[in-house]
Structure formats: structure tokens, C-alpha cells
């Protein structure tokens, strides 16, 4: 079962994932400690989104094991999902329901109590309270993304999974997101996010993981220090795994 005693929020061992003939992740190993913001980087097709979907229990691995807070996600799906909040590419909202109705419905799915208070708190936190009774269909993509963030935060998850959360957000919303993530880190919770905005990611992250060709090509515990190396690796598709493995871990 889920154990908070472990020091690892995420542990992936020899993970393989193929979609048909396309190999997306192969022999991926990754350990992410509790209480850090980890940024997953990599070029298109590197496997970032697939890895996030695996951590969110939406996609099954072909082989290997993945555990979250010590619990194998293959056998503890509901318990793991109770500890995670996810904002993936699509906002995943019911367009013909209002923001409030969407959040109330998902509060039911998470079996939350004091729902009105929770909704009030999270909508203020992400800045959507003026439009809480508007139908989602009438909101811009950026607003919808904020509603998705509110849904992910509502049950106070220990692990937040974000797939390019800044996409579609204006600079004010990105600042707000950064503040939320800072609060998350300072309260000892864990964030794993993907991004293409390298500079922003390196400012925010405690750890930067560059995926390359379905594996961890570079795992930096000090992204500020390794800034140049990360940028070089990230922008150079041509660098081979063997040369990446010679970089400091």
C-alpha cells in the first residue's frame, strides 16, 4: 500500500512502453525524492508526456515497475490516484457545465467533504472565482487550464503532475502558477512537470531530468549549476545517449 515513510515520491525501474511498433520508453530508470519540483525536459517524442501519463495511471507500462510513495501503481491505482493531482494537455472539462458544476462533480469523484469551502479556496487560488458560474464552453483555453488546475488541487494532492502547464496561460497566470508551485514545495509536497520553456523551468526546478530517446539522458540535482549542460543537451537532438551518460548525475 501507499507508504509516506519512503523518501521517494516516484520510483521507476526498467520501464518499457511501446505504442505498436513505436518504442516510446525503454529501460527508463528514475528516482524522484519527496518535496522537490522536478522538471522533465526533452524534445518532441522524447517520452515526457507518456511518462506523466504512466505516473497518472492513465497508461500502463509494458514492462518494469513504477511506484509512487512506495506503492506499485499497477496494483494500487485508486490509492495512488488519491495522492496525485494531474493537469495534462487537455483541460478535460465538461463544456456544457459551469466551472462550479465541474468542480462539484469532481469533488464527488474524490469523495471530498466541505465542497463549497474547497471550491471557494481553490478558485481564488487559481484566479477563476469571477467566472465560477460560467459554462466552461465560454472560457478561453487559459481559463480552462486554470479550472483544470483547480480540479487537480482541490483534494490537496501530495504529488502534482503537470504537462506543460504554462501553455495557453498569460504571464500573470504563469506567475500565479509559480507561486502555487513554490507553496507546494515549501509544504513538502512534490511536483513533476514537463515544459518546453527551458529558462523558466530551470529557475523553478530543484531537479531537471532530460529525457532522450525514451530514457533519462541527464538527471541534474542542481539545475542552476548545470544550466549550460542542460540547455546544450536539450537543444541538441543529435547527441547520443552514450555521450549523455558521461554527464554528471
Amino acid at each position: 500500500m501507499v507508504s509516506q515513510a519512503t523518501q521517494l515520491a516516484v520510483k521507476a525501474e526498467v520501464v518499457v512502453k511501446n505504442f505498436g511498433a513505436t518504442s516510446v520508453l525503454h529501460d527508463l530508470n528514475l528516482e524522484l525524492p519527496i518535496g522537490e519540483i522536478t522538471v522533465l525536459m526533452g524534445t518532441n517524442g522524447a517520452g515526457k508526456s507518456t511518462l506523466l501519463r504512466i505516473l497518472a495511471t492513465l497508461t500502463q507500462v509494458d514492462s518494469g515497475t513504477v511506484s509512487i510513495f512506495g506503492a506499485d501503481i499497477a496494483t494500487n491505482g485508486p490509492a495512488v490516484r488519491a495522492l496525485t493531482g494531474s493537469v495534462l494537455h487537455s483541460p478535460m472539462l465538461y463544456a456544457d457545465m459551469s466551472v462550479r458544476e465541474n468542480l462539484m462533480f469532481f469533488a464527488d469523484m474524490y469523495r471530498l467533504e466541505n465542497v463549497d469551502d474547497l471550491i471557494a479556496q481553490t478558485t481564488v487560488m487559481v484566479g477563476i472565482e469571477p467566472r465560477i458560474d460560467d459554462r466552461v464552453r465560454t472560457l478561453s483555453h487559459g481559463f480552462q487550464k486554470r479550472v483544470a488546475l483547480a480540479r487537480a488541487l482541490m483534494h490537496d494532492p501530495q504529488l502534482l503532475l503537470l504537462d506543460e502547464p504554462e501553455s495557453g496561460l498569460d504571464s500573470q497566470s504563469v506567475d500565479r502558477l509559480d507561486r502555487i508551485l513554490d507553496e507546494y514545495r515549501s509544504s513538502g509536497r512534490t511536483v513533476v512537470m514537463t515544459t518546453h520553456i527551458v529558462e523558466h523551468a530551470l529557475e523553478l526546478a530543484d531537479r531537471a531530468v532530460v529525457l532522450f530517446d525514451g530514457r533519462v539522458g541527464f538527471n541534474s540535482e542542481n539545475p542552476q549549476r548545470d544550466r549550460e549542460a542542460i540547455q546544450e543537451i536539450y537543444s541538441a537532438n543529435r547527441i547520443s545517449i552514450s555521450s549523455l551518460e558521461s554527464q554528471p548525475q
Binding site: 492513465l58 491505482g77 472539462l93
Partner: peptide, 15 residues
Amino acid sequence: ENSTLEALMLAPISR
């Protein structure tokens, strides 16, 4: 169409 099935799958409930 709106990937809401995935949102349901993210909930901590038996599928």
C-alpha cells in the same frame, strides 16, 4: 471529445 473520460480515470475510484 473533451477527454473527460480521462478525467474520470484520474479519480481515486475503481474503474
